[in-house]
Computed example of a mutant assay.
Amino acid sequence: MKILRTVPLVSASGRYGGPSDSSIAQARLLSLDGNDVTLAAGFFIGDKPDYPRDQVTYRLFPVKSLFPAPGFTTVGSVGGVRALLHEVRAAEIIHVTYSREFLPLATVVLALMMRKPLVLQPHGMLTARTGRLHHIVDTVTRPLFRRASAVIALTSQEADALSRWVGTGMPECFHVGNPRIDEAPTNQTGSSQENEALFLARLEPRKRLVDFAEAAVLAEASGSLTSYRIVGPDQGDLQNIEGILNSAALLAYEGAVPASEVAGRLSSTGVFVLPSFQEPWGNVLVLALSMGIPVVVTRSAALATVIELYGAGKIVDDGAPSQIAAAVSALLDEPEAYKQASRAALSLSSDLFDDSAIREELGRAYAFAINTAKKHQRP
Rank of each mutant, 00 (worst) to 15 (best):
Ala69Cys: 10
Ala41Ser: 15
His135Pro: 03
Glu101Gly: 07
Ser31Leu: 07
Val297Arg: 05
Glu220Arg: 13
Asp333Gln: 14
Pro335Trp: 12
Val78Thr: 13
Leu66Trp: 02
Thr298Leu: 02
Ala367Gln: 13
Ala69Ser: 15
Ser222Phe: 02
Leu266Asp: 04
Trp281Asn: 05
Thr372Ala: 12
Val166Pro: 07
Lys2Cys: 03
Arg89Trp: 12
Leu245Asp: 09
Ala216Lys: 01
Glu254Ser: 14
Ile293Glu: 01
Asp47Gly: 13
Asp351Glu: 11
Met125Trp: 04
Ser99Val: 07
Ala216Asn: 00
Leu200Asn: 05
Asn240Thr: 14
Tyr253Gly: 00
Ala327Gly: 08
Ala219Pro: 00
Gly282Ser: 08
Leu133His: 02
Pro70His: 11
Leu126Phe: 05
Gln323Thr: 01
Pro335His: 13
Asp317Trp: 02
Val296Gln: 08
Ser222Ile: 06
Gln55Leu: 11
Ser260Gly: 02
Phe199Gly: 04
Phe277Glu: 11
Gly264Glu: 08
Glu214Cys: 09
Gln340Phe: 06
Asp21Thr: 14
Glu92Cys: 05
Asp237Trp: 08
Ala83Lys: 12
Ser149Phe: 00
Thr73Gln: 11
Gly264Ile: 07
Ala12Tyr: 06
Glu334Met: 12
Ser77Cys: 11
Leu331Ser: 01
Phe43Leu: 12
Phe174Glu: 08
Thr107Cys: 06
Asp33Ser: 15
Gly177Arg: 12
Arg59Phe: 04
Ala83Arg: 13
Thr38Met: 03
Gln323Trp: 01
Ser347His: 15
Glu92Ile: 01
Leu39Lys: 08
Ala150Leu: 09
Leu103Ile: 14
Val96Ala: 09
Ala248Gln: 13
Ile3Glu: 02
Ile45Ala: 15
Ser247Thr: 15
Gly46Gln: 04
Val286Pro: 02
Leu218Trp: 04
Gly311Trp: 07
Glu87Asp: 14
Ser20Tyr: 03
Lys116Gln: 03
His95Thr: 09
Ser163Phe: 06
Asp318Val: 10
Gln340Pro: 01
Ala148Cys: 04
Ile370Asp: 04
Gly313Asp: 07
Pro122Arg: 09
Thr139Gly: 10
Asp211Leu: 08
Leu203Asp: 03
Ala128Pro: 03
Pro117Val: 11
Ser163Asp: 10
Ala40Gly: 11
Ser267Asn: 14
Glu158Leu: 00
Gly46Met: 07
Asp318Asn: 13
Pro62Thr: 07
Ser290Cys: 06
Val10Gln: 00
Asp54Thr: 06
Leu105Gln: 06
Ala365Ile: 00
Asp21Cys: 09
Ser356Ile: 15
Glu242Asp: 10
Gly46Ser: 07
His376Ser: 14
Ala161Tyr: 04
Ala221Glu: 14
Gln235Glu: 15
Ala41Gly: 05
Arg146Trp: 00
Leu60Ile: 06
Ser99Tyr: 01
Arg142Asp: 09
Ala330Glu: 14
Leu348Ile: 10
Thr6Pro: 00
Ala344Phe: 02
